[in-house]
């Protein structure tokens, strides 16, 4: 893979990490942020839902809207519509009485529920704002899943169509400047080598640029199983069961489970290879591979291991 612009996702200043639910978006986003910070970039990583998985990834109790330094150079925050609204009103509308904005925020919540794009534009606006103001060298977003990401980063375009005049309309212009500049904004789509995640990834690739104007940058294949055998070895491995009595005699009854484990791993690996081939056939984007970690650890340990794997892939 040539180390062109496409592979250098960390050279962007705003990176959305998306993918089907359960593929490991948060670990990848955390690892990218860790890597960026390790390379000396002042980094912000932001979780878009309030599930708290990003806090778990860094083993910190709870994250807030106010970014907090979780590692040297690495700041983490969680998005919150009400706080984003308050900040927006303070910065742009110059509403003087921020203290009394509480009921307005609740009001806004309902409005935002009903008016598509309003909530999204606030949170996407907050991210673009951090990029525009250069508060950080890079902003990495643990974004919504494939099903919701289009309405999230497509919000500025939708709003621009809907709101003919007004402050928001003016502001969509600079947001779109940030989002539509390929040297500034990138999208990493995470998948596992399984049928549905790959299918959803392909469906997203088809829609993303058309409906949001934001181009996908790189694909990340997470939890890729190791290749156990060369083809010459696989022929033998597949026939080992024929010698089961000998093996049980030599290594004990437990050898059945050992052979079964190898068989399962190998079969799953083969299925996965097929799905990744499908991805390669239908997309020209570079694919970075993160191996299955087989670790019992969670949290920071996982972030470090994934970061190491990505580091190797990106060199």
């Amino acid at each position: 893979m040539p180390s062109g612009v496409d592979a250098s996702i960390l050279d962007r200043r705003l990176v959305f990490v998306t993918g089907k639910g359960g593929v490991g978006k948060t670990s990848i986003a955390g690892a990218l942020a860790h890597l960026a910070a390790r390379r000396g970039k002042r980094t912000l990583v932001c979780e878009m839902d309030d599930k708290g998985s990003l806090a778990d990834a860094f083993d910190v109790g709870k994250l807030d809207f106010e970014p907090r330094e979780v590692e040297p150079n690495l700041f983490a925050m969680t998005m919150n519509t009400e706080d984003a609204l308050k900040e927006y009103l303070r910065l742009f509308v110059k509403v003087p009485f921020i203290g009394r904005v509480g009921p307005l925020a609740r009001t806004f919540d309902f409005l935002a529920d009903a008016a598509p794009g309003v909530r999204e534009i606030l949170v996407v606006g907050k991210l673009c704002y951090e990029v525009r103001e250069r508060h950080y060298d890079i902003v990495i977003v643990d974004a919504e899943a494939t099903g919701h990401i289009v309405s999230q980063i497509g919000a500025p375009m939708v709003i621009r169509e809907m709101a003919q005049v007004g402050l928001v309309r003016d502001q969509t212009d600079w947001m779109l400047d940030v989002l539509h500049d390929r040297s500034v904004t990138g999208v990493a789509v995470v998948t596992t080598p399984e049928e549905m995640p790959v299918t959803e990834t392909l469906a997203l690739l088809e829609r993303l640029e058309r409906e949001t104007g934001v181009a996908p940058t790189v694909l990340m294949a997470n939890r890729v199983l190791p290749n156990l055998f060369a083809s010459r070895q696989r022929v033998v491995a597949d026939r080992l069961a024929e010698a089961m009595p000998l093996l049980v005699d030599g290594a004990g009854e437990g050898v059945r489970a050992v052979l079964e484990a190898a068989r399962i791993t190998d079969v799953r690996r083969q299925i996965g290879v097929g799905h990744l081939d499908r991805l390669r056939a239908e997309s020209d984007l570079p694919i970075l591979t993160v191996p299955e970690l087989f670790t019992r650890a969670t949290g920071r340990r996982v972030v470090t291991l994934v970061a190491d794997a990505l580091d190797e892939e990106m060199h």
Partner: peptide
């Protein structure tokens, strides 16, 4: 509310 919302969102919207 309208005063603020109007400034932010634009009245047609």
């Amino acid at each position: 509310f309208y005063q603020i919302a109007d400034r932010i969102l634009g009245s047609r919207f």
